[in-house]
Design a protein around this nucleic acid. Structure first.
Length: 260
DNA sequence: ATGTCCCACTTGGTGGGA
C-alpha cells in the first residue's frame, strides 16, 4: 500500500489539484496538512467519491490536518497531548487494521517557529518536546507507526539549496535540528534518507522569487517510521512534478510503499 | 530574504501567516 504526506496549502484553493493527484497517484492513505478549514466546511464529498474515508482536525483560517484513507478508521485521535491550552490544530492519528495487525498513521503540521525572537519559536520547541514524549509512549506499543507531515525542519545542510540563506531561520536553527535528531534517536527511520543520500532532494519551493525555477528548495516534509513500520518499507519517492502544475501548493507529496 | 499565495473580514483592500 501507499502512504503519502502533502501540505496542500488550503483545501478550498487546492481541491482540483488534490483530486487530480489522488486520481493519478492513488495513495491508500494520504496525510494532508494546512487544510485551512474547519471540520464542518471540509469538502468531504469529492474525496468520498474516490473511495476515501475522511477524518479532519481543522480550525478557522490556518493550520489544520486531515487523513484520507481507503481503509476504514478503527480509531481516530485529534490533538497532540501535553498542553490542554493549545488551540492549534496540528495533529491527527488514525489506526487501521491491515494484514496480520495494525498500522498507526499520524498527519502532523509542526509549527513554523518564525520569527525566532517571538513566542512562536519556544512554542515550536515545546511542541517538538511534546511530540517526542508522545512518540516515546507509542513506541512502547511495539507497533507499526508512521509519523507523516510537514515538520518545518531542514535536517541537514544538504537539505537546502543555500544553507547560508537559512542561517538563523527557525526551520534551520540548531535547536530545531537537535529536537528533530532527538526524535529520530528514539529509534525512528526517516523514509527518504533510508533510501538516498542525495543532496538537493526537496519537498518545498517558495512561491516567491522564482524559487521553483531556480530549484531553490528545502526538504521539510518527512515520514518517520517505527522499527516495526520500517521493516515494511519497500520504496520512497517524492512527487516533484506536481510543483509544476497549475495552481500548485508550495509543497509536493512524499510517498512510501508499505508492505501491508 | 522576499519577485507569492491563501485566508478572514459586519469585506471588494488590508493584515496575518507562511
Amino acid at each position: 500500500m501507499k502512504i503519502a504526506t502533502w501540505n496542500i496549502n488550503g483545501v478550498k484553493a487546492r481541491i482540483d489539484t488534490v483530486i487530480s493527484w489522488l486520481e493519478q497517484a492513488s495513495p491508500d492513505i494520504a496525510c494532508l496538512q494546512e487544510i485551512k478549514s474547519v471540520d464542518e466546511n471540509f469538502p468531504r464529498e469529492p474525496f468520498e467519491a474516490l473511495g476515501y474515508h475522511v477524518e479532519t482536525h481543522g480550525q478557522k483560517g490556518f493550520n489544520g490536518v486531515a487523513i484520507l484513507s481507503r481503509l476504514p478508521f478503527d480509531e481516530v485521535n485529534r490533538g497532540l497531548p501535553g498542553n490542554d491550552g493549545d488551540e492549534q490544530a496540528r495533529f491527527i492519528e488514525g489506526v487501521f487494521s491491515v494484514d496480520g495487525g495494525v498500522v498507526r498513521v499520524v498527519s502532523l503540521y509542526l509549527p513554523n517557529g518564525n520569527p525566532v525572537d517571538s513566542e512562536k519559536f519556544p512554542y515550536k520547541l515545546a511542541w517538538m518536546r511534546r511530540l517526542h514524549d508522545w512518540t516515546r509512549e507509542r513506541l512502547a506499543l511495539e507497533e507499526p507507526l508512521v509519523l507523516a507531515g510537514d515538520y518545518n525542519v531542514i535536517p541537514q545542510q544538504g537539505d537546502c539549496h543555500d544553507p547560508k540563506a537559512w542561517e538563523g531561520d527557525a526551520l534551520f536553527r540548531p535547536e530545531s535540528r537537535a529536537a528533530f535528531r532527538r526524535l529520530l534517536n528514539l529509534g525512528l527511520t526517516e523514509a527518504v534518507r533510508s533510501v538516498t543520500d542525495k543532496t538537493g532532494t526537496y519537498t518545498f519551493w517558495d512561491y516567491q522569487a522564482g524559487a521553483w525555477q531556480k530549484n531553490n528548495g528545502i526538504r521539510i516534509d518527512h515520514l518517520l517510521l517505527s522499527p516495526e513500520a520500517a521493516n515494511k518499507l519497500r520504496a520512497v519517492h517524492i512527487d516533484k512534478h506536481v510543483r509544476a502544475w497549475e495552481k500548485p501548493s508550495d509543497h509536493v507529496p512524499v510517498v512510501i510503499e508499505y508492505a501491508a
